[in-house]
Nucleic acid binder design. Structure first.
Length: 302
DNA sequence: CTAATTTGACCTGG
DNA sequence: CCAGGTCAAATTAG
């Protein structure tokens, strides 16, 4: 544990340092945005790594997430999670419900996903460097745009449980709110020998003909010169009246320092408990608390 | 051809 | 019952 703790500290320090760099860059009159994005990516990587350390109490890393500008926020689900357990998709024959005509076409039969972490991101871009596969779309009542549902492409290859929901929430600058649910477990821990796995050596994963799977830590994030400087919402203590802001979100005006043409923005919904206010310690606790990593996932033979 | 998306049916929790 | 989430057949894209 000491190792993880240390590593966590290192990551966070690194992140803070980089944030400071970014800050000074932003104060320069001609800070170029390439550098800014680079720094930003660095910061986000430290977040990702930190989360990785926290969630996977082991020590593996390689969360190649967050490709282009977005800052995410982890929000421990409402603390009281009931639902006895999370057997996805009730089994076939056995415990099926009295619906006799059940298996004519049994779509659905899902239980609310329970203990997966979720975090929301608001951004003008939906790319996040992950391979997602859309599996549904729904019209949400109070929303003006439909909500799209995605799952990780490797769900069946590797049993990755990550999903996300994307919903456009605004038009002029196309703005989407993405809710990530569960972390990617794919592309790592393939043959995980029960022994220690050094944090750094991932056995090159035998480049199968995957098509361009980037090596860990995405080489080039900003593939298409996409500018995106996120604006992180800061749960201020007295933000009592967000009268003219959509929802109850508060946007921190980071972008005022930049002259990016693209009005990118990020914020985290303030619906429930947001962790911004928490101390790292508490946050760590809640995340650990929430860490459930496991292998339930009954393989469904078709 | 395979892989991804579309789209309505189907389930479940509240 | 309803709204939201998921499945899978049909369709389209690569």
């Amino acid at each position: 544990m000491g190792t993880n703790h240390k590593r966590l500290i290192e990551e966070l320090l690194e992140g803070r340092k980089t944030a400071v760099e970014l800050q000074s860059l932003l104060h320069k009159p001609f800070g170029d945005r390439e550098s800014a994005e680079e720094l930003l990516m660095k910061i986000m990587t430290t977040f990702t790594e930190s989360l990785s350390v926290l969630t996977a109490s082991n020590g593996h890393e390689d969360h190649q997430s967050a490709a282009s500008g977005e800052v995410y926020q982890v929000k421990p689900e409402p603390s009281h999670v009931e639902h006895s357990h999370c057997g996805d998709r009730s089994s076939e024959g056995s415990g099926e419900s009295p619906k006799t005509q059940a298996f004519k076409d049994r779509r659905g039969s899902y239980k609310r996903r329970k203990t997966s972490q979720s975090w929301k991101v608001i951004s003008t871009k939906i790319e996040d460097g992950q391979a997602w596969r859309k599996y549904g779309q729904k019209i949400i009542l109070k929303a003006s745009y439909p909500r799209a549902y995605f799952r990780c492409t490797r769900k069946y290859d590797q049993g990755c449980k990550a999903t996300k929901q994307v919903q456009q929430i605004q038009d002029n600058p196309r703005t989407y709110q993405t809710t990530y649910i569960g972390e990617h477990t794919c592309r790592t821990m393939i043959k995980a020998s029960p022994m220690i796995i050094g944090p750094d050596l991932w056995p090159s994963q035998t480049v199968s003909s995957e098509s361009g799977s980037p090596h860990r830590q995405n080489p080039n994030f900003f593939g298409s010169s996409s500018s995106s400087i996120p604006i992180v919402k800061q749960e201020d203590s007295k933000v009592g009246t967000p009268s003219d802001v959509t929802d109850n979100n508060v946007w921190l005006g980071l972008k005022d320092h930049l002259d990016f043409s693209e009005p990118t923005g990020i914020c985290v919904s303030s619906n429930e408990n947001v962790v911004s206010n928490m101390q790292w310690d508490d946050m760590v606790k809640s995340i650990n608390f929430e860490c459930d990593i496991n292998f339930d996932e009954g393989f469904d033979a078709v």
